[in-house]
Design a protein around this nucleic acid. Structure first.
Length: 421
RNA sequence: GGAUGGGUGGCCGAGUGGUUGAAGGCGCUAGUCUCGAAAACUAGUAUACCCGCAAGGGUAUCGGGGGUUCGAAUCCCCCCCCAUCCGCCA
């Protein structure tokens, strides 16, 4: 959520910034709505002032055992006026908030303009895509032939876009989770957390999934939602809190499954592990002082890249253009890993700085010193990494001519074998 | 799921209709004292919004929402959460 005051101070600037991400929003009436809010508040405050004053006088008279009847008569009906004004004020405030909640974040100055993926820019590449002297198989074919991925039975158990991992395949997924968590906790200084996988709507509003993106979520009959990413529960750890300056920056990593309805993705990536309703992910989340968040974004992205380096997978880092970023992000790097079957790179991590956008929604603040006013923190997060896609990348990049798959060195200690098949 | 007791400021804790934003204590900040520190003493110490150049003033907030009343932390209703007991369960 943007700061209403800041928006009103520089409407043209905000509109220009939002135009960069192809966000069309109706700003007309915003100023008037805010004026209405102010005048209602003025009226309301004055009336309450009067009410409080007279009530105080009544109290004094009663204590002095004197009649207050004339004052009681005078105040009859005022309470109703207060109620009516209060309701109008609440209504206007709700309208303002509703409007603000629909507005995406403003892109950072370093973000390239553009409305779709064609304006994204490659920042750097690492590793060399492997070459094969035989026709490569894609990961779903490899997984099925090796008996470690069973898409058919998962469809029977649940439906499309689910996977049953089997034997060494299940163990590989688990090994990757442990490997990634160990790397981030032991070498990158993150604190591991294991959050709830169901969250309430306040949490989803805090990180920006609600109210706009309800269709992407699974909702339970109790009104809770399955998390679409650990970003939601982990960022909300500190919702409605004032952190101490010395606590910052805070770095959390978490393993969770993620659940996405994938509404609107019909026909896309229908085969394999790439696009599932349920997948595992290691998430990195940071809370920082505002002046440190861009440095933190570089660091967080580097931490995610480290996983791919250790696994020996070729990847590149993309900076997303304004129009391709998620709703809450001010700047996003996507990390894309090489997929031999597609002769191209596919997203495996997305690392974003949200600046104070989520912090304002979720009311996450910090205090520099005992006498200072609370300020909003900056929040960041990124995948470190999506586990299912990592399994897919390993299968494809480490496949051998005989259909077996070598296990990357870094994982052998976790898995206890050198190859699958 | 049933029963009972609770949710008050950064923390502990008083307060059951009338200057209560809220006693008292702790913590924190500043000052006095000290060579310095501790202790002691003194003062200050919430957040948001509105008016104002400012000084300052006003309003709201005692888990959340509604209601009663001239007036609600205090009374009533609904919801959430916590504790304990029972039931159930991994």
């Amino acid at each position: 959520m943007l700061d209403l005051r800041a928006v009103l101070e520089d409407l043209p600037g905000v509109q220009r910034a939002l135009a960069q991400r192809a966000a069309t929003l109706d700003f007309s009436g915003l100023e008037a709505l805010n004026q209405e809010r102010k005048s209602l508040q003025k009226e309301y405050d004055a009336l309450r002032f009067q009410q409080n004053q007279v009530s105080g006088e009544i109290a004094k008279l009663k204590q002095a055992k004197q009649s207050a009847d004339h004052l009681l008569t005078q105040m009859r009906g005022v309470a109703d006026q207060v109620r009516v004004l209060g309701e109008r004020m609440t209504g206007v405030e709700a309208q303002l908030r509703e409007w603000l909640l629909q507005v995406p974040n403003l892109p950072h100055a370093s973000v390239p303009a553009g409305v779709d993926t064609s304006a994204n820019q490659v920042v750097r590449s690492s590793g060399t895509p492997p070459t094969f002297s035989f026709p490569v198989k894609d990961h779903s074919e490899l997984g099925e032939k090796l008996g470690i991925l069973d898409f058919e039975r998962a469809t029977k158990i649940t439906g499309a876009r689910f996977t049953l991992y089997r034997g060494i395949g299940a163990a590989l997924e688990r090994a990757l989770i442990n490997f990634m968590l160990d790397l981030h906790t032991k070498e990158h200084g993150y604190t591991e957390v294991l959050p709830p996988f169901l969250v309430n709507s306040e949490s989803l509003q805090g990180t920006g999934q609600l109210p706009k993106f309800e269709a992407d979520l699974f909702r339970t009959t109790t009104g809770y939602y399955l998390i679409p990413t650990a970003e939601v529960p982990v960022t909300n750890i500190h919702r409605d809190e004032i952190l101490q300056d010395k606590e910052l920056p805070i770095s959390y990593c978490a393993y969770t499954p993620c659940f996405r309805s994938e509404a609107g993705a019909a026909g896309k990536d229908t085969k394999g592990l790439i696009r599932q309703h349920q997948f595992n992910k290691i998430e990195l989340v940071k809370f920082t002082r505002p002046e440190q968040s861009y440095e933190a974004l570089e660091q967080l992205t580097a931490n995610a890249e480290r996983v791919l380096q250790r696994l020996g997978l070729a990847y590149r880092v993309i900076v997303l253009c304004a129009g391709d970023m998620g709703f809450s992000a001010a700047k996003t790097y996507d990390i894309e890993v090489w997929f031999p079957s597609q002769q191209g790179y596919r997203e495996i991590s997305s690392c974003s700085n949200f600046e104070d956008f989520q912090a304002r929604r979720a009311n996450i603040r910090f205090r520099r010193g005992p006498k200072d006013k609370p300020e909003l923190v900056h929040t960041l997060n990124g995948s470190g990494l999506a586990v299912g896609r990592t399994v897919a990348a390993i299968l494809e990049n480490y496949q051998q001519a005989d259909g077996t798959v070598l296990i990357p060195e870094a994982l052998r200690g976790y898995l206890g074998v050198e190859k699958i098949g």
